[in-house]
Design a binder for these strands. Structure first.
Lengths: 355, 355
DNA sequence: TCTATATTTGTGTGCGCACACATTTAGAGA
DNA sequence: TCTCTAAATGTGTGCGCACACAAATATAGA
C-alpha cells in the first residue's frame, strides 16, 4: 500500500526550525511571534501543504457542541417531521465522537404557545446552536431575535424568514414547489379542466410560506397559455382533521362539481384522496411529502404525484452546517435550496429506502 | 453547556478493576483473558454503555485505506461519469484524516481493452478496495474474479452483475428506471401515439443493463391497457456520435413518420433532441442523466423529462460502504438501490446545485 | 553594567486508544 | 517445597494536536 504520509506539525517545526508551540501560535493567531519566524512558518505550511489533522485536533480539544432543534412534533415515525429529525440524528450519530450533542424539542403546529414555551426552554439551556423550523412567523421572529441577543447561531429549515439573521436557510424554494405542482397537475388534465388549491392552516396569515406555494402554483398558469375556460379555485380549511376536511370539500364540490384536479399545499393530501375515493370522484391529485398515509394513497392511485423536499437531507445538512461553522469556522451561504423531488407510484419505494 | 462525558476505556478499567490492557484484549479478542475478568469487563462495557472513540482509535491505528475506482472516463466536468467521481472525492476529502486515499482510473466506454488495461494496473497496486462500474460484462467478470482471488473487496456502482461476489451493488434498479420512463412518456402522449426506444451501444450483448432498461420500459405498456393502435419500436445505434445518430434517425423516421414519443436509454438524449429541433419534429422526449447537453435541451423544451439516478450519491455511498466495512467491519446489504429522480425544466437547477 | 520586566520561544502533559513489552500469577514437573 | 514455563495481567509509548507553563531572549530603566 502506498503511504503518502501526511505532514504534521512536527514536520513544519523541523522545516522551519522552530518548536511546535510557535507553530501553534501562528496557526491560531494567539500570542506573539516574531515576524521572521512567522513568515518562515507560513512558508513551511504552504510548502509542505500542511493541514491539521482534524481527529487529533478534536481529540485534544475535547469540546462539546450542544445543539437544540425546534420543529413540529412527530407523533409517529411516519409523520413528516420525523424525517428532518432522522437526518439530524443520523449526522449526529456519525459525528458523535466529534462531540456533537443534540436535544430535540417539539411544538404543536396548532398551538403557538407550545412553540413559545419550548423556545423559552431552549433559550435557558444556552445551546451552541439551534435548528429551527419557523412555521409560526411571528413567534419565530421573536425567538430569532432572542437568539441574536444571546449570540447563538441558528439555522432555518423547511421554511424561511429572510428578514432574520439565520446563519442559513435550508429548504425548498417554496414558490418553485408550487410551480412544479402546477406543471405536474397540468400534464394530467385536459386544457379546460378546472382546478382547486386546498390550503390547510389555522391562519394562513401567520404561515407565510403557504401563500408562497400557492403563488408559485398560480404563476405556472399565468406563464403558460391557458384555455379561457379553465378556472383555478382556492379553498382554505382551518384544520387538518379528516372530518373537517370532508365537510369543507363536500360543501365546495356541491357548488363546484366540475373540478378535475386538486393541489394540496401541505402534507394532508391523503385526506382529500380518501374523500375522493369514498365519493367515487375521478379527480387528479397532487400533494406534498412522503408521509405514510400519502404513500398509501399514491400506491392505490388516489394521488398521482407527491412533491418531496428532501426532508432527511434538510436535517442532516442543518447539523452539518452548524458543525462546519463551529469546527472549521466555515460561513455557509445564506440560502441552501434542496432538491424538489417528484414522486410517483413507481419510484416511491426507492426514496423511502434510501433515507 | 451540559457535558455528558463519554465513558472511556479507563472508566471501564476502574469499574471492572482491571487494567486497560486487559480491556483491550476483550474488545479485540486477542490474547488470553480469564473468564471471570472477561465477564466483569463485558458487564462494565454494557453497564456504562461504552463505545470506543473512533477518533482516538483511528489516530492510534494510523492505518491508510487505499481504494481504486474504475469507471468510464469523464472528459469534462459535465460528463455523467464525473458525478460519481465527485461523490467519491467528496466523501474522501471529508474523511481524509481517517486515512482514506483514492486513486481514480478510467476506461473508454468504447474500448474493452482500455478497461482490461486499467484493471491490470489496479490489480498490481493491491488496493484495499475497488469501486467498479461494470459496464462491460465479460471483462468485468474477469476482473471481479481476479479481485476475488486476491481477496480484495469491490463494490459495483451504476450497473450490477448479480452473479459476482461484489460486496454490494449501489445503483438504480434498472428495470424500474425504464418503467418510470414509460410512465412519464405516457402522460405526454395520446393513447394511440407510437413510441420509439433508442439504444446506443457498441454491442448491446455485452452491456446487459441496457436490455433491462428497455424491458422495464416495455413492461409498463404490458401492465397498462393500451390502445391496440399503439406501436413501440426499438432502434439500436452502435455509436454515440451525433452524425451517426442523425443518420440512423433519418433512416428510421422516413420509414416510420408517425412517431410521437421517444425514450433514449442512455445519456445521449440531447443528440436526439437536437435532431428533432433541426427537423422541426414535434416529438416528446424522455432520457437519462443530468449531463450538460441534456440539461440544455431540457431547458429549451427539446426534452420533457430526464431520469437521474443519484450519480453523486452513488459514488459517495460506494466509498462509505467500503469505509464502514474496513473500519467497523460492517457488512453491507447486497443491493443498495438509489433514488430514481424525475427531473424537469422546473426542478433541474436544484439538483445541479445540491450536488 | 546590572537588574527588573516584557517579549518571544520551547517543553511537557493529556485527549482515548492500540499495541509492544514488562511484570505478575498460576500451573506443572521434579 | 522449589524451579521453570505458560498463562494472565499491567505499564509505557506514540498517534497529532492544543494548551498551560517553563525557559530563554530582548528591552528598558537605573
Amino acid at each position: 500500500m502506498s503511504k503518502p504520509k501526511k505532514t504534521t506539525i512536527q514536520d513544519i517545526a523541523n522545516y522551519a526550525q522552530v518548536s511546535v508551540g510557535t507553530i501553534d501560535r501562528v496557526i491560531h493567531n494567539r500570542g506573539k511571534v516574531s515576524p521572521i519566524k512567522k513568515k518562515k512558518i507560513e512558508e513551511a505550511i504552504e510548502h509542505l501543504n500542511f493541514n491539521p489533522n482534524l481527529l487529533a485536533r478534536t481529540l485534544a480539544l475535547g469540546k462539546q457542541f450542544f445543539i437544540c432543534t425546534l420543529i413540529p412534533e412527530a407523533k409517529t415515525s411516519q409523520n413528516y417531521w420525523s424525517l428532518p429529525l432522522r437526518g439530524v440524528e443520523q449526522f449526529a450519530s456519525n459525528y458523535k465522537d466529534f462531540g456533537i450533542e443534540i436535544e430535540a424539542h417539539e411544538y404543536s403546529l396548532f398551538e403557538e404557545d407550545s412553540f413559545m414555551e419550548q423556545a423559552r426552554v431552549i433559550a435557558e439551556k444556552n445551546p451552541d446552536g439551534v435548528v429551527l423550523a419557523p412555521l409560526f412567523e411571528k413567534e419565530s421572529i421573536q425567538f430569532a431575535q432572542l437568539l441574536d441577543d444571546k449570540k447563538i447561531p441558528y439555522v432555518f429549515i423547511d421554511a424561511n424568514i429572510p428578514s432574520q439573521n439565520a446563519l442559513t436557510y435550508i429548504g425548498p424554494e417554496s414558490g418553485t414547489s408550487g410551480f412544479i405542482g402546477a406543471r405536474l397537475l397540468n400534464t394530467l388534465l385536459a386544457p379546460a379542466d378546472n382546478i382547486l388549491v386546498v390550503n390547510m392552516a389555522k391562519g394562513v396569515d401567520n404561515s407565510a410560506h403557504i401563500g408562497v406555494v400557492e403563488n408559485g402554483f398560480r404563476n405556472f398558469f399565468k406563464e403558460h397559455q391557458q384555455s379561457p375556460d379553465r378556472k383555478v379555485f382556492t379553498l382554505t380549511i382551518p384544520s387538518s382533521e379528516e372530518s373537517d376536511i370532508a365537510r369543507e370539500l363536500t360543501k365546495f364540490y356541491i357548488k363546484n362539481p366540475d373540478i378535475k384536479g386538486v393541489f394540496v399545499t401541505n402534507s394532508m393530501a391523503s385526506a382529500v384522496s380518501k374523500f375522493h375515493r369514498t365519493h367515487e370522484l375521478d379527480i387528479k391529485l397532487v400533494g406534498f411529502d412522503l408521509v405514510e398515509s400519502n404513500v398509501e394513497e399514491l400506491k392505490n392511485g388516489g394521488i398521482e404525484f407527491l412533491i418531496s423536499q428532501s426532508p432527511v437531507f434538510q436535517g442532516k445538512r442543518a447539523i452539518q452546517t452548524l458543525f462546519d461553522f463551529f469546527v472549521y469556522r466555515k460561513e455557509p451561504s445564506l440560502v441552501q435550496y434542496v432538491p424538489i423531488d417528484v414522486i410517483m407510484k413507481e419510484n416511491v419505494d426507492y426514496y423511502i429506502n434510501a433515507q
